[in-house]
Amino acid sequence: MTSLATEQTMSQITGRSVKLQRSIVIGFGLLAALLVLGTILVPGFISPRNARSILLLAAFLGLASLGQTLCAMVGALDLSIPYVIGGANILFPSLLVTGMPAWLAVIVVVLLGAAIGLANGFLSFKLQGQALIMSLGVGFAFVGAVQLYTSIGSDYGGTVFAPVPDWLRNIAAFNGKTFGLPLPPVVLVWLLVALVTIWALYNTWFGRSIYAVGGSRTAAARLGISETKVWTSIHGISGAMSALTGVLLLGFSGGGFVGVGDPYLFTTVAAVVIGGTSLLGGAGGYGATVLGVLVLTILTSLLVGLGLSFAAQQAIVGLLIVPMVAVYARTPHIRNQI
């Protein structure tokens, strides 16, 4: 029995590794194809200016997609992400208006995002049959409460204007530089976050616990892994990263707007799927999502360069996701192999 169990475990690990490798190969193939098409069809597509723009937009999407990746790895989706982003984007400047120091306002907003995420994770875990609706409801409640707060003494609760700190503008500036390189500092922030996250997923108990819970809840429980803690923690991280993204987007735009997070409802899920992380859990990782973010951002840049409308862009990205899901879904999920 022990030998059979070992063989089954090795088979599951091998199957998951092959699936991840295949998704990475497909992702790099798409990336190369899009770069070639862009170079041929759009003048200046690979110019330094356009490359800087792509990396800047990819950094925001990449930071927002971190939490979505962790949630997908345990078989969940966090639909509150765009609403936490929008709420943070108008809450931060409103705190600045009250006289709160900018550094303290950042901490408050990020901690509040984490608290919302923890609540979202706990409630969605307890009601897993309605987890998607639960996360959506939590997002609605948060952004509505923030709009009520920011509208006190004002007729405009969805838009907030306040002097944005210079350091925040510099971090998210299009023409910013990092150590003399023509890269916005937020790109470096994303790179550091990506490296730490990828390392943690493969080299820490918490990271391995996420894979364990996503692969087999029964096996994870026998290893002494608390599914409740893992589920709640990753939603907390998702909330914190969403709030941080909302703050950074303020430095990019210069004014708070509650709808700034709306595009991230679709794009964070799309980046995870295109990267090859299984929405059923147990396979993938943030490295795959980084690849998916780059593919999605370059594709969007190509479509914009071709002069397509936003609706046409959505249609094409949607058509891309369908075959990607079909390809990745051909490998049976690890739970079905036990």
Rank of each mutant, 00 (worst) to 15 (best):
E7M: 02
E7G: 00
T14V: 07
G15K: 00
R16D: 15
R16C: 08
I24H: 05
G29M: 09
L30Y: 01
L31D: 03
L35N: 03
V36L: 15
G44T: 06
F45W: 05
R49G: 13
R49E: 15
S53K: 14
S53D: 14
L57I: 11
L57F: 12
A59L: 11
L63V: 12
A64G: 11
S65P: 09
S65T: 10
Q68R: 02
Q68N: 09
A72R: 03
A72L: 07
V74W: 04
V74P: 05
V74M: 06
A76V: 05
L77Y: 00
S80A: 04
S80P: 01
P82G: 01
Y83M: 04
A88L: 06
L96S: 08
T98C: 02
M100C: 04
L104K: 00
I107V: 11
V110N: 01
L111P: 09
G113S: 04
G113P: 15
A114T: 05
A114E: 02
G117F: 01
L118W: 02
N120T: 05
S124Y: 00
F125P: 03
L127S: 13
L127A: 14
Q130C: 03
S135K: 00
L136S: 01
F142T: 02
F142C: 02
V143N: 01
A145C: 08
V146A: 00
Q147P: 07
L148H: 04
L148R: 07
T150N: 11
S151I: 05
D155A: 06
Y156D: 15
V160L: 01
W167Q: 05
I171W: 12
I171V: 15
N175K: 13
G180D: 11
P182H: 00
P184E: 00
V186C: 08
L188C: 03
A200G: 07
S209W: 09
G215M: 12
G215W: 11
G215L: 12
G215T: 10
R217G: 00
R217N: 03
T218M: 12
A220F: 11
A220T: 08
R222L: 09
L223V: 05
S226R: 13
T228S: 14
S233R: 14
G236P: 14
S238G: 15
G239I: 04
G239M: 08
T245G: 13
T245V: 08
G246D: 13
G246Q: 06
L248D: 07
S253C: 04
G254K: 06
G254W: 15
F257R: 00
V258Q: 10
F266V: 13
T268V: 03
A270P: 12
V272W: 00
V272P: 13
V273W: 01
S278H: 00
L279A: 05
G281A: 03
G282C: 09
G282S: 08
G284K: 04
G285Q: 05
Y286N: 08
G287D: 14
A288T: 10
A288N: 14
T289R: 01
L291R: 07
G292D: 14
L294Y: 02
L296C: 13
T300C: 07
G305E: 11
L306Y: 10
S309Y: 00
A311V: 14
Q314N: 15
A315E: 07
I316M: 12
V317I: 15
V317F: 04
L319Q: 13
I321A: 07
Y328L: 14
Y328R: 11
A329P: 08
R330I: 12
R330W: 05
T331V: 12
R335P: 09
R335T: 06
